[in-house]
Write a protein that binds this DNA or RNA. Structure first.
Length: 239
DNA sequence: AGATCCCGTAGGAGTGTTCG
DNA sequence: CGAACACTCCTACGGGATCT
């Protein structure tokens, strides 16, 4: 349709591996065949049938798959996402309930009918509906964490962002995320470190600094506890 | 029910040293 | 020289009590 090409959304099918990248638009991914491992700074997600994944704009990520897979990917321009999880936020895994199953079938039909990625008016309406049922904006402190996990952070600072007492903030944070602020930050840092170990030749001490540890000793100890191996062993195992 | 405070404990962060 | 280890200090966390 004239004027809508590559501007509203793009639907396509993935079968290849994709290296770390980010983009200005949001993305919905529906598994069709096989499974796929998605890495973001905050988590690693194994995506397979029964769930779908929402990636907010500017969320750094990479895909990999142990075997053949097929995924439907829907690019969503940020103008559709004003009240959804904010720029640079975390990926969200969604259970494929009846609404998402129906939506994925409709998106798939569109992809098959317009394999060049051209979007139609009906797709625009579907996208608006999908955005309406996506999770709403994360809290300010969670969004702050996503962007500043490599900086020195205290729960007092984070509590101040939410205007809570630090003690109450920890309980509130745990209710929101299932983690304490410290373990959540640790998870963010370890995922970022694993990505750097896999994709760069930077020395371990440098990677520790990159993800927020001034001392290599602290980084190695925490990495070993978290992953069951030292950073060097992780890098060797990956290569 | 939501928010704050006190206190004891576990574990995270920093530092120095050893090892390969 | 970079990685790993051992140790100390301090902060985060949890439990329980209290206040609004």
């Amino acid at each position: 349709m004239e004027g809508l090409r590559n501007t509203v959304c793009e639907t396509r099918v993935y079968t290849e591996e994709v290296k770390t990248h980010e983009h200005a638009y949001g993305q919905l991914t529906f598994p069709l065949e096989g499974s796929m491992c998605l890495d973001t700074p905050s988590e690693s997600v194994l995506l397979q049938k029964g769930s779908c994944l929402y990636l907010p704009p500017a969320c750094s990520h990479s895909f990999s798959s142990p075997g053949r897979n097929r995924f439907l990917v829907l690019d969503i321009p940020s103008r559709f996402l004003s009240d959804v999880t904010g720029k640079g936020g975390a990926a969200v895994t969604l259970k494929m309930d009846d609404r998402w199953k129906s939506l994925s079938q409709l998106f798939l039909r569109e992809a098959e009918e317009a394999p060049n990625g051209e979007a139609s008016h009906p797709v625009e309406h579907l996208v608006r509906y999908a955005c309406g049922i996506l999770p709403k904006s994360a809290s300010p402190s969670l969004e702050y964490l996503q962007l500043h996990f490599a900086e020195p952070l205290t729960t007092t600072q984070l509590a101040a962002i939410e205007h809570y007492h630090p003690k109450y903030y920890i309980a509130w944070f745990k209710k929101m995320t299932g983690h304490t602020p410290t373990s959540y930050i640790l998870q963010l840092r370890m995922n970022a470190a694993k990505q750097l170990l896999r994709e760069t030749a930077l020395p371990v001490s440098m990677i520790g600094q990159e993800v927020g540890y001034a001392y290599a000793g602290s980084f190695i100890k925490l990495f070993s506890r978290s992953e069951g191996m030292t950073p060097q062993q992780y890098r060797r195992g990956f290569r």
